[in-house]
């Protein structure tokens, strides 16, 4: 028996989901971070974040079409994490690393938190 493994299939699907997001096609939730709004697909959010997984598997909350995050969350940090969810690329700017890490902790994105820890450690001269 033979099986064809398309090695770039996962990234091709993700690219298309990101195109759908940028064109606001089938996006089904607005995330409110302070006064900024981000449109996204619930399935992508819950596939990447423990917090969104808990929200959208809760039968009382799964039909919400807007979710307000804790006002302490930095919209810039959230934007970087949302971009990561849809592209697999995490932009780690030194000026934003703490807000990216704190937002990742809040969103329960443990692997990203670990990566931020390593980045901070590697940039610490002491």
């Amino acid at each position: 028996d033979s099986c064809i493994q398309f090695t770039r299939h996962a990234s091709d699907v993700l690219l298309n989901l990101n195109r759908l997001r940028s064109r606001d096609i089938l996006t089904d939730v607005t995330i409110l971070v302070n006064r900024q709004q981000f449109r996204a697909h619930k399935t992508v959010l819950m596939a990447c974040s423990g917090l969104f997984y808990s929200i959208f598997t809760d039968s009382h909350k799964c039909n919400l079409n807007a979710i307000s995050l804790d006002p302490k969350v930095d919209p810039e940090g959230f934007a970087i994490l949302l971009e990561f969810m849809y592209t697999s690329r995490l932009t780690l700017k030194e000026s934003l690393i703490m807000s990216i890490m704190n937002t990742a902790i809040y969103l329960q994105m443990d692997h990203v938190v670990d990566t931020c820890h390593r980045f901070i450690k590697s940039s610490d001269p002491s």
Binding site: D1, S2, C3, I4, Q5, F6, T7, R8, H9, D12, V13, L15, N16, R19, L20, S22, R23
Partner: peptide, 21 residues
């Protein structure tokens, strides 16, 4: 998948949704 001969296909797997119509 044990015993299955897996062939790697490195080309695009699906159509690409355009940025805008």
């Amino acid at each position: 998948y044990e015993g299955v001969n897996t062939i790697k296909e490195r080309g695009r797997s699906i159509h690409e949704i355009p940025r805008q119509d």
